[in-house]
Design a binder for these strands. Structure first.
Length: 839
RNA sequence: GCGGAUGUGGCGGAAUUGGUAGACGCGCCGGCUUUAGGUGCCGGUGGCCGAGAGGCUGUGGGGGUUCGAGUCCCUCCAUCCGCACCA
């Protein structure tokens, strides 16, 4: 007697998957030519389908499976719709985790990274992802980072990369600076250590030059999630207002402030400087308040970013003993120093209007300062809270000299003009966005290609001397300066300009620089005379569909947009936005929680691929739910999808035997009736449904549609065998299942299609539903009384309204509910329902 | 505090424009596969009442618009995410 696992009719995913993977690898099936290369079809539409490149650490996780499966579905779907599809893969290989691992274990980051890349590559292969592997690279390879350095030099030449002494966020644990974007709640995004502020000479990229265009060009995007756009918009934080000058007569210092509310200028009753304000010391000198101010500043600077950011705590501050003049009324107002004013926003100084600003109000109340209301509603009273927020046409100025009586919006304009005419202010726009700090005092990154020469100063490394290779070093442990500084032969070099002795920059670049242009390199990955050929990039770009996690909503996506614009401005690209459409996927959780090593609930795709096969793992992760939402992986659930694929396989085997040679062509639709018609209809319904669902990223419902089709095939198949038309319908339906399933479960789809049609499904155009089979000749008419369903009738499609009403009234259950009542209204929705409104 | 999202059976989820709520899957219950199955096939499965026909009820709570609301409007609650002393 045969044990179940020995049965010959058992779905064996591993044999099937191995077989088709070998075909695709041998034939290079998913390679796509560039313009001018053999096989390139200038008439075909292009589509660039890209998933965010993985950071290779350990082995791939469930998020990767989801990400690359989604992309693969689209890539296949678009290929079969006649498009030339670019679907590449690479690795974001530089970065701190590999380096920290190296410090712990002594294994060189290159070694662990490469081992991980090999594992990623192997698993992507085992998942059957359709990649053009000729375009693969890691960002840590000199043949790649050579061009990262090249781009840096170009940015430098444009004045978009610059070096300056700046207060920077420093992570004491990682011993490196962080970009503003990498500081979360005052802590290092990576390790959670509270960050401190340090003054350092650092490299910045001038992303602020592009703030307006980063906002403006959202309109060029085809399809981005609204919330990602909103997040970026908030991050850039553009606000319009005015810059207004407050002058201190003694000592003579000008203090410009930024305000969005110039209409409240007459309500400014005091003035506040940030503790870090550079003019503070000079201001206080000789005021008699030096000691209190110094003490306060010392205390404020010692506090962590976290503590200072707490909005709940009471306002603190001290009087400086100085006054500044309010330019609109010449009034002298006292100057305070307080930590609620931030040096990094605006000018580090604010005019305080306690009647119309919550924070100023709190400060004024604590220090007993005047609160002067200058805005009042046109109608009615305004509560204290409301006074802080809105300024609309519904409010008018009071106590505001010549501007009294104007509405708030009018006054904003008038006061700003008045100031500008007198050289006391001007309209101004302010941003929350800061320049991008890219220096990292770490080893495992792209060296910054700059040389310091005593004679020539800062000299960028010329193109023919790139790449500046990352040297082999003994000790990469962080010491507060870059480990590269310890390598004498790296640091000491000759000046590219004068040939004299010079020293290299020893910082490396933030890894986000590496990933800000990788999508361009895929277009021409093996070019060793340029970062890319413009023709190739202009052909493939922009990415038509980008897919990745929301966690990159701000950082990566904004940096990549910035790079694209900067490179386009240099004439190197002919488009302004890198990613036309963006899809952000939800997280995969396990046991209801985010997977993490500390929780011990990490599961790996490879375990499921080994047990059930890649097709099951791929389908299950998509069947789990809508892909933009978080979804919980459950071990019971996988079994259900695996059973479904087993059913597909057995159906394929059985049909290939019992309806041999019937092929994939649909039977002539005009002759169909009964079971063959029903199944042919279902198959056409599935074609339409799956097509639509893929377009809408509703992969879960596409798979349910296929399950329904398979269920119907099982239910009807015994009836269909032995009859020419029946067998053709069954064979067609089964081939359709395989064809539609191929995108999700490529191996099984290819196998079953091959068994039935003797053809390669990926070379078969995407099927189109036969419109004649999408129409129903009978439909279920719902009969309602007062909106409640009382019966359902099978009626012929196209039955006239009067006839529908007549048929509905005949039904006994409808009669019962109408009995003795007066019909007030009859609602007929053709093709759907009849509703009698009675009393 | 501001902004955004989500809330539907025991569970994951379905329901393009307002028109049969619960597709599909998991789980559970039952039947068949002349013996066993962590196999396969078939059927049932929101709750309550009822022998049945059928009835009542039901999409986080409350209210509204409509012949008809998971879907639209108002309001409240809960959970999650982003930003947060941004002048």
């Amino acid at each position: 007697m045969k044990r179940p696992d020995e049965r010959s009719d058992r779905y064996d995913p591993h044999a099937i998957e191995r077989r088709w993977q070998a075909v695709w690898a041998d034939e290079g099936t998913w390679q796509v030519p560039n313009p001018g290369e053999p096989g390139f079809d200038p008439g075909a539409r292009k589509s660039y389908v890209l998933e965010m490149l993985p950071y290779p650490s350990g082995e791939p996780h469930m998020g990767h499976l989801k990400n690359y499966t989604m992309g693969d579905v689209l890539a296949h779907y678009r290929r079969r719709n006649g498009m030339l599809v670019l679907h590449p893969m690479g690795y974001d290989a530089f970065g701190l985790p590999a380096e920290n691992h190296a410090i712990k274990t002594g294994v060189h980051p290159a070694q662990s990274t490469n081992a991980s890349i090999e594992e990623f590559r192997r698993q992507f292969g085992s998942w059957g992802i359709s990649i053009d592997w000729r375009r693969e690279f890691g960002t840590h390879e000199p043949r790649y980072y050579r061009w990262t350095q090249w781009i840096f030099v170009k940015l430098y030449e444009q004045g978009l990369a610059y070096r300056r002494l700046a207060p920077v966020k420093w992570c004491p644990k990682d011993q490196t600076v962080l970009a503003n974007e990498q500081v979360v709640d005052g802590c290092c995004e990576r390790c959670g250590t509270p960050v401190v502020v340090r003054q350092l000479e650092q490299w910045f990229l001038k992303i602020t030059d592009y703030a307006d265009r980063l906002l403006e060009d959202f309109k060029l995007l085809e399809s981005w999630p609204e919330r990602v756009v909103t997040m970026q918009r908030n991050w850039i934080g553009r606000s319009e207002g005015a810059e207004v000058s407050f002058r201190c007569p003694e000592p003579e210092i000008e203090f410009p402030v930024f305000t969005t509310r110039p209409d409240t200028l007459f309500g400014a009753t005091f003035f506040v400087l940030a503790p870090e304000h550079p003019d503070l010391e000079r201001l206080v000198q000789g005021s008699g308040h030096e000691q209190e101010v110094t003490e306060y500043v010392q205390r404020a600077l010692k506090e962590s970013t976290e503590e200072r950011a707490d909005t709940e705590r009471e306002k603190t501050g001290v009087f400086t003993g100085r006054h500044v003049v309010n330019p609109v009324n010449g009034e002298s107002i006292p100057v305070y120093v307080s930590d609620y004013v931030l040096m990094e926003y605006g000018t580090g100084a604010v005019m305080a209007v306690p009647a119309h600003d919550q924070r100023d109000f709190e400060f004024a109340r604590k220090f007993g300062l005047e609160i002067r209301r200058v805005i009042e509603p046109v109608h009615g009273e305004i509560s204290e809270d409301e006074a802080f927020v809105a300024h609309s046409g519904q409010e008018r100025l009071v106590n505001s000299g010549p501007f009294t009586g104007m509405t708030a919006p009018e006054a904003i304009k008038a006061i700003t003009e008045w100031l500008a005419e007198r050289g006391l202010g001007r309209p101004a726009v302010n941003y929350r966005l800061r320049d991008w700090l890219i220096s990292r005092q770490r080893y495992w990154g792209t060296p910054i290609p700059i040389v310091y020469c005593d004679k020539c100063g800062m000299v960028p490394v010329p193109e023919d001397q790139l790449p500046v290779l990352l040297p082999e070093i003994e000790d990469y442990a962080p010491k507060g300066k870059s480990p590269l500084a310890a390598s004498e032969e790296f640091v000491n070099t000759t000046c590219p300009s004068c040939g004299g002795p010079a020293r290299r920059e020893t910082d490396t670049m933030d890894t986000f620089v590496d990933s800000s242009w990788y999508f361009l390199r895929y277009c021409d990955a093996n070019n060793d005379s340029a970062p890319w050929d413009k023709g190739a990039v202009d052909h493939w770009m922009p990415v038509d569909q980008y897919i990745g996690g929301v966690e990159h909503a701000i950082l990566h996506l904004m940096y990549a947009r910035f790079f694209t614009k900067a490179l386009a401005d240099m004439g190197m690209l002919s488009f302004l936005e890198p990613f036309a459409s963006l899809f952000t996927q939800g997280m995969i959780t396990y046991q209801g929680a985010k997977m993490s090593k500390s929780k011990g609930n990490v599961i790996s795709p490879s375990a499921y691929v080994e047990r059930f096969g890649a097709d099951t793992a791929r389908c299950y992760i998509l069947f789990l739910g809508p892909p933009d939402q978080d979804a919980n992986w459950s071990d019971e659930g996988v079994g259900g999808v695996h059973r479904f694929l087993g059913r597909v396989w057995r159906l394929g085997e059985e049909v290939a035997e019992r309806a041999a040679g019937r092929g994939a062509e649909p039977p002539e639709s005009s002759q169909l009736q009964g079971a063959p018609l029903e199944l042919a209809r279902k198959a056409n319904w599935a074609i339409a449904k799956v097509t639509d669902d893929i377009e809408r990223f509703h992969f879960n419902t596409a798979l349910s549609a296929l399950m329904e089709l398979v269920n119907d095939a099982y239910r009807l198949k015994e009836e269909l065998y032995g009859d020419e038309t029946g067998e053709r319908a069954l064979s067609f339906a089964t081939a359709t299942v395989a064809s539609l399933l191929f995108q999700f479960a490529p191996h099984l789809g290819a196998e079953v299609y091959d068994r039935i049609a003797g053809a390669r499904v990926w070379e078969t155009p995407w099927p189109e539903a036969d419109p004649r089979l999408l129409e129903r000749d009978v439909m279920a008419l719902v009969v309602q009384v007062n909106g409640k369903v009382r019966d359902r009738i099978e009626v012929e499609s196209g039955t006239a309204e009067e006839e529908l009403k007549r048929l509905a009234l005949e039904r006994p259950n409808v009669q019962r509910h109408l009995d003795g009542k007066q019909v007030l209204k009859e609602v007929v929705v053709p093709g759907r329902l009849v509703n009698f409104v009675v009393r």
